[in-house]
């Protein structure tokens, strides 16, 4: 499977998750967005040696995946982009911070090892928190939440258009690639002489689709701003983020977990 197919599959899976009828999907997007941002903010604010409270902070992603009926496998798969980077940044620390801060049995533990561990945990948690958000909230709803936070209209429209055009282009690209591979089974990649005709057809179809999407939006009453039905704020929409934020604040500031 090539990278485009993988991205399309990932996109489709996310869209299916976003369209589920689930209580987490029905929560107000503003609350979920703010909760995710504040969770990440609190997680990265921990000192580099504070392993214990960081472990406790894993409760939020665990709850999100279990109660939200999300796949741990998918969440872990999303770490592929940040995992190498976080690992390499963290891996320096044992080389430079060699102060022995304790022993586990006869094995010495250095400050660098602890800080490497916390960097990795912070990386994992932030990716998982964003996954919980995007798996239960559509891009349209996120843009709606951002508009409540006074994100400029033009920026919100551009985000929505990029999202739509990307999907269309990627699907067309994948179909043409498959057709080419079936006709040229022993070639390693597309021959440069075929790029023009191949990509030209791909482009025309993609643009036809993209223009259709944009014209459809205009026909459905798109006048430069997107109309999303105002979401009613229920008690659960307020309680859910507040309870979590209180829990985060307790772990972060009470000192109970060190």
């Amino acid at each position: 499977m090539n990278s485009i197919e993988k991205n399309i599959n990932e996109l489709n899976k996310l869209q299916n998750l976003q369209q589920r009828s689930h209580w987490m999907n029905e929560l107000h997007p503003l609350g979920k967005l703010l909760l995710s941002v504040l969770y990440i903010f609190i997680v990265v604010s921990f000192d580099k040696y504070k392993v214990v409270p960081l472990i406790v902070m894993s409760v939020y992603p665990f709850f999100g995946f279990i109660a939200g009926e999300l796949s741990f496998k998918e969440g872990i798969y999303r770490m592929r982009l940040i995992l190498p980077l976080v690992l390499f940044v963290g891996i320096f620390n044992p080389f430079f911070d060699k102060q022995i801060v304790g022993m586990i049995g006869s094995v010495p533990v250095t400050g660098g090892v602890l800080s490497m561990f916390t960097v990795m945990l912070k990386g994992f948690y932030s990716v998982l928190a964003v996954y919980i958000l995007i798996a239960t909230t559509s891009i349209d709803d996120i843009c709606y939440a951002l508009r409540i936070l006074h994100l400029p209209k033009v920026l919100a429209i551009v985000i929505l258009l990029i999202y739509r055009y990307f999907g269309i282009m990627a699907i067309e690209a994948d179909r043409i690639m498959t057709a080419y591979k079936l006709r040229a089974p022993h070639q390693n990649g597309i021959h440069y002489k075929a790029w023009g005709t191949l990509v030209g057809q791909w482009l025309l179809r993609s643009m036809d689709r993209a223009e259709n999407v944009y014209e459809s939006m205009l026909l459905r009453g798109f006048t430069g701003d997107f109309r999303i039905r105002k979401k009613k704020v229920r008690i659960a929409d307020i309680l859910y983020p507040i309870i979590w934020l209180l829990a985060f604040a307790f772990v972060r500031y009470s000192g109970f977990f060190g």
Binding site: V37, F41, S126, I134, I159
Partner: peptide, 13 residues
């Protein structure tokens, strides 16, 4: 923003 949300390429914070 879309890269960050959809493909976890770059962090939200």
């Amino acid at each position: 923003l879309v890269q960050c949300l959809l493909f976890a390429d770059g962090g939200l914070l």
